[in-house]
Each structure stands twice: as C-alpha cells, then as structure tokens.
C-alpha cells in the first residue's frame, strides 16, 4: 500500500532524475567550459540530493539512512571543492571564459 512516505519518495526520485537529465543536457548545450561547470553542479546538488533523499524515504529510519546521509555529505563537501579546483586550474592555465558584456546581452535579448 503506497503511503504518503512512498509518494514523497517517488516524487523525490523522479524530480532527482529530472535534474540529472537537465544537468547532462546543460553539459551538452552550454557554450563553454565555465558555464558547463554550472551544468555539472546541478546534478551534484539537486540530482544527487533528491535521489538520495528519495532513497532515504524508502529506507525508513535505519543505519542505511545514516549511510545515505554520509554519502550525500561527502558529495556536498567534495563536489564544490573539485569543481572549484577544476575551474581554477582552467583559469590559471589561461582558458578564457566566453563572456558577454551587458550591452551585447541586452541587444541579443531584444
């Protein structure tokens, strides 16, 4: 019998899957490396967070929950650290970000 917890869990899992997809789509669509970092960080935060949260609801309150929490915590600590290091390395090696000034942006949006 699907209880409220089950529904919540599936909602989380589905939303997480959605964000995982969006993240990969962003990796494909965005124009340069720096903006793709943003795309990757969607899945690091929302994708992973929601999917793991969904699994937490599945697991109920047990040691598994704790493990899931620790996995998520590890991802949250290391995710930004590695994406920052990556961006920094690229920046220092002289990979120029594709920038668009405000004027250009305004004109392209009009």
């Amino acid at each position: 019998m699907p209880g409220a917890l089950d529904i919540l869990s599936w909602a989380c899992l589905l939303a997480g899957s959605f964000f995982a997809l969006v993240s990969s789509l962003a990796m494909l669509r965005l124009p340069d490396f720096y903006s793709r970092v943003h795309g990757a960080s969607i899945s690091d935060t929302m994708g992973a967070g929601l999917i793991l949260l969904g699994l937490v609801f599945q697991a109920g309150l047990s040691l598994v929950t704790v493990k899931l929490g620790l996995v998520l915590m590890f991802l949250v600590i290391t995710g930004p650290t590695s994406s920052h290091t990556l961006a920094k390395a690229a920046y220092r090696l002289g990979l120029d970000p594709q920038l668009r000034s405000k004027e250009e942006n305004a004109s392209s949006q009009n």
């Binding site: 720096y34 935060t45 920046y91």
Partner: peptide, 26 residues
C-alpha cells in the same frame, strides 16, 4: 566560496586568503 560553488550558476574560480573571490556567474 564553497557555498557559492554549490549554488549552480555561480562558481568560485579564485579564492585567496585576503578574501578576494573571483566568481563566474552565468
């Protein structure tokens, strides 16, 4: 810096001990 990176659409590119951050925003 990590909070900034964690938030998608902003990534910290440089951070130095004197508190200067360079951020790439989308």
């Amino acid at each position: 810096a990590n909070s900034i990176t964690l938030t998608p659409s902003t990534v910290t590119i440089e951070a130095t001990s004197d508190g200067r951050l360079v951020v790439h925003a989308l």
